[in-house]
Each structure stands twice: as C-alpha cells, then as structure tokens.
C-alpha cells in the first residue's frame, strides 16, 4: 500500500543521498520526493511517497531512523494528514477547445499562469486525486507538457493527538 513518510533531517550535504540510498539498495522505488527547509534552518524536511507491504515498510522506517542525520521519521499514513501537490500543465489551445478548457479549469479551481497564442500553462494545487482527475479531464484537449511537484503532507494534529483520530471531525477544506 501507499505510504507517505515525513523525515526531519539535518540540513547538510549528502543527507538526501543517504536517504535515497536506503531505498535503492533494497530495490524499492520512490514514487515522489520533495525536500525543503523548515522553521529551523538547521533542519530540512523530506517527504517521500513509496509503496510496499507492512514488513518492508517497518524495515525501511527503522533503517531511516538508524541514519545518523535523520532526526525524526513519521509515517503520516498511520493517522490523519493533509497532502498537497502542485502541478503545471501546458495544453494546446485550439479555438474550438478553449471554452472546454476554461470550464475544466474553473471546476477544479485551477489557474492559468501563462498563455501564448497556441498554449495555456495551468497551475493546479490539491491532493494527488484531484490533480490526477484534473489531468485526465484535460487529456482529450491535448497535453503538451506536464510538471508535477513532489507531494507534501502534514499531520492534522501534533503527534500526541494523532492517534486519536476517531474523535476528530473532518474539516471542510477552506476555499
């Protein structure tokens, strides 16, 4: 099953390759990866989406924890979390398709960030499912280019409350 693992690591050279090396050495694929700074500039946050059975993931999580430069490992999929991904899509804009393109962009609350006489570049942000659905809708119009950021995710509450997900209500996503 799919897992989203969030890693708090030292902000040093060579850390990413240690993390990635753990996956490659065991022949596991990383579906998506994103790295960025945190509030504390001495640390970085790595978000990894991967797939595997329970035993493999237990082993990966332990191995990640064992890396000296890894400060904390959280398997976000164990509890409630919010995830986002940003995607830039370049589509062909034939005159007859423009209205349809606008309609889809409107429905998904995407944004046109650039246009040329023959193309629109559209930005969409959302969870993986939403992005996937959007791309599928646009596909008949002719995708020219597609760039997806890695997925990022955040736990819905602090670690202590995280185990208590049943009591919490689903928060309606703000516009």
């Amino acid at each position: 099953m799919e897992r989203i693992i969030s890693l708090l690591v030292e902000n040093k050279f060579g850390v990413l390759v240690r993390v990635a090396g753990l996956f490659s050495a065991r022949g596991f694929n990383i579906e998506s990866l994103s790295v960025g700074p945190t509030i504390d500039p001495s640390m970085s946050l790595i978000t990894i989406v991967t797939e595997g059975d329970e035993r493999i993931l237990e082993q990966i999580t332990k191995q990640l924890n064992k890396l000296i430069d890894v400060i904390k490992v959280v398997d976000l999929t164990e509890n409630d979390f919010v995830e986002r991904e940003t995607t830039l899509v370049k589509i062909h804009t034939r005159t007859e398709d423009r209205a349809e393109a606008f309609r889809i962009i409107e429905i998904f609350r995407a944004k046109i960030v650039d246009s040329t006489p023959t193309t629109y570049t559209v930005e969409i942000t959302g969870d993986a499912q939403k992005v996937e659905a959007f791309i599928n809708q646009l596909r008949p119009l002719g995708l020219k280019e597609l760039v997806r950021s890695g997925r990022i995710a955040i736990a819905r509450d602090d670690a202590k409350a995280a185990g208590d997900h049943k009591r919490r209500q689903v928060v309606v996503e703000a516009k």
Binding site: R55, E58, Q59, K62, Q63, N65, K66
Partner: peptide
C-alpha cells in the same frame, strides 16, 4: 541494541 535487527 539495533531495532532494525528485530523482526527483520
């Protein structure tokens, strides 16, 4: 002493 050894 190494958690990765357990249940490997």
């Amino acid at each position: 002493v190494d958690p990765t050894s357990i249940r490997k």
